[in-house]
Each structure stands twice: as structure tokens, then as C-alpha cells.
Design a protein around this nucleic acid. Structure first.
Lengths: 105, 105
DNA sequence: CGTGTAAGGAATTCTGACACG
DNA sequence: CGTGTAAGGAATTCTGACACG
């Protein structure tokens, strides 16, 4: 089974009500953070939002940052920075970019 | 966070529609296997069934067994046997039982 | 035995908006 | 800016039952 590896953490299967219970955040807050591009749930064919455990963790971090007075725009940049450190796609592109730079130096 | 350990696999957060997609089983089938004591979802306060990724895996095994012509009652015994091998509670009880047996031999 | 389906109701989720500050 | 809420509609889930075999 394609999904049965160790990737339970990133599989988007949790609906917003459950995420609300897990994080202690209101559904309003969760939807707002999506509007501000901090979180990216998938959607069922009929438009129902689905989140992963990874998303739940991110949401808790977002809530913590906000409590500290950080603005959503700042949090967004912080999250973006982190993505680049782990996203294989970005890693590949970085390497490619390095080669290009060297080639055209 | 209590849930944020490696236990994403056993946390019951997936509703039946999503489980149906993940397993390819109908909701009718999934509810029936519960009726036959093969699977044990949790319930939200309002009665909505919630499953874990572990449950999803179990459901797929159940479906495979059924295709092979195994009866739900047989599958139930098989699953019970397995539980005993991994459930810490049962392990503890077995040890305790051993001590008692020795004591009253 | 295992599964499909129609039935009626209850709970969930969605969007866009008004409110406060 | 970040969050609450009432509003109306659409999608989801639940149970008990009839059906087939």
C-alpha cells in the first residue's frame, strides 16, 4: 500500500473539527491561517478541508508565535525558510542552480 | 504535546468517509466489521466514528481474509491472538498470572 | 453471512459578511 | 490584524430495516 510507509505524519486525512480538538484552536482560526498562507490543507472532491498530523504540529507552532505577538506575515516567512531546508524539490533545485552558476561563471 | 510522539499511527482521528477512500471498502462494510468486533473505532461526543491509521491497516487485512473466504468469526480470533502478542497490558497480566500460578502451585 | 440501498434525522463543514479594535 | 458569530446551504454520518442469497 502506497500510504502505508512511515508517512502517516504527512497524509492529509483529518477534518477541521478534529484538528480543532487536537490543537485547541477554533475552526475560525484554522481557516484564517490558511487564508494567510500559513497552512495548506487538501480538499475532498466536495471541498472539505483535510489536514495531516504535520499540519497539526505546524498549527500549534503558529499559535505559539501569535501569542508571542508575531504577525502572520512574519510567521509565513519563517515557515518558508524551514520548508527549504527539508523539501527535496528545493534541494534539487539548489543543486541545479549551483551547477548553472558554475557553468556560466 | 501528549499526542505528538511517534503514535500518529494509533491516534483515532479519521472519519469513515476517508477510511472508505483509504481502504476501498464501503462504509457499510466498515461498520459491519465493527458490529462483528473486528475493529474498534472511537466516537466523538456526538457519535461520529474515528479511526486510526492502524485501524486502516487492519481493515485492509480483514478485507483480504474475507476475499480468501475466511469467516468474520475466524478473523476475529486471529486478530485477538495478535493483540496478545503486542499489548503491554496483556503482557503484564501474563507475567502476573505466571507468578500467581507459581505461588499457588 | 456479508453487503447494497432508501429513509429520515442529526452533526459537520463551507463561504461571505458584519463586528470589534 | 486576528477572531467571534449568525446565516443558509451543501456534504457527511448515524441507525434500523428490507433485500438477496
Amino acid at each position: 500500500m502506497p500510504w502505508s510507509d512511515g508517512s502517516y505524519k504527512i497524509k492529509k486525512v483529518i477534518s477541521i473539527g478534529t484538528v480543532s480538538e487536537l490543537t485547541g484552536l477554533s475552526e475560525r482560526q484554522i481557516r484564517y491561517y490558511e487564508e494567510r498562507k500559513l497552512i495548506f490543507p487538501e480538499r475532498s472532491k466536495t471541498g472539505i478541508r483535510k489536514y495531516s498530523f504535520q499540519d497539526v504540529e505546524t498549527l500549534i507552532e503558529i499559535a505559539n508565535q501569535l501569542e508571542e505577538g508575531v504577525l502572520t506575515h512574519e510567521i509565513r516567512k519563517e515557515l518558508k525558510r524551514r520548508e527549504q531546508l527539508i523539501d527535496p524539490k528545493v534541494v534539487r533545485n539548489s543543486l541545479l542552480q549551483g551547477q548553472l552558476n558554475a557553468h556560466f561563471k
